[in-house]
Design a protein around this nucleic acid. Structure first.
Lengths: 150, 150
DNA sequence: ACGCACTCGTTGCAGCCGCAACAAGGTTGC
DNA sequence: GCAACCTTGTTGCGGCTGCAACGAGTGCGT
């Protein structure tokens, strides 16, 4: 109802900017950690994280779940295959599909990754304090519907 | 104290991922809007937003305030100059510095941009509801100190 | 069986980004 | 005054990304 005095605009107080900077910083330190300790990128981490839940998954399913471009997933999967962490096999029932599956090495890597990722999240939540759950809920509500779609 | 049952890892519940997706979606719709209506990118918008507060500003000062790489600012400024929104003049006192300044057209553009940006933020805050202030505070606390620095 | 529309994964391409090197300018110590 | 060092902004470069086009494969209607 009130009209804010916006004669001076402060970018630091602009929520989309704050959100972008926060996400970039978190993403950067997370990526640096995973790159240094495990030699994988965020895209590869996401693919591995999704594969940890299922036996054989197609690129399409990951694309439907993980908010990454098809091509990004495809290239990440190619790198993971070359590194020996996943295998790619064509689905005999539908030969368009590619079944991605973790190798034994891949499962061992995931077993190392998950605790590190969870610890990272815990550190993040600790710094958020009591606001943690509200932030998570807020992220979800922002993700659901696109802001500019209306 | 409690050990969480982490036998299944859900990427959707992973806060760094949620943060990244939310920021990307917000950023994307914001960028699309500004690109379509005004023909400028987010980098250019940030430079304009900073220039709206000062008369003549160097690349260095923007770099110190706005969390963008020097080169990104430089290129954004070059595009803005070519579009006629800012002027670049070398500082007579220190000829390394470049004084960026809004033209009349640039000021008019900013006067159009700011209400749109503020309305965008209002829409975002409305969808966050009561959690809005907590989210803003949370973003700030994430920005201050790097998460992986400890 | 065949044509047509659709789906899936890969690849080419253009654009953006961060990093580092660089040139030009300034500052300090002697 | 000058040499070594720092600062500022630009540019080249390698890598990544999103988009669109593409080839291969599938399902459907007839």
């Amino acid at each position: 109802m009130n009209i804010e005095p916006t004669d001076t605009f402060l970018l630091d107080e602009f929520l989309p900017y704050q959100l972008c900077v926060a996400a970039n910083q978190v993403s950067r330190s997370f990526a640096e950690r995973f790159r240094r300790d495990f030699g994988i990128s965020i895209a590869e981490w996401r693919v591995l994280a999704h594969l940890s839940r299922a036996v054989a998954v197609s690129v399409r399913e990951i694309h439907a779940c993980v908010d990454m471009d098809k091509s990004k997933i495809s290239r990440a999967a190619a790198r993971l295959e070359q590194a020996g962490y996943v295998t790619k096999r064509e689905n005999p029932g539908d030969r368009r599909l590619v079944e991605l599956e973790l190798t034994a090495t891949g499962r061992a890597l995931v077993a190392e990754l998950l605790p590190v990722a969870l610890q990272f999240q815990r550190d993040l939540l600790r710094r958020l304090g009591a606001k943690g759950p509200a932030v998570r809920e807020a992220m979800r509500s922002m993700i659901r519907e696109a802001p500019g779609a209306g």
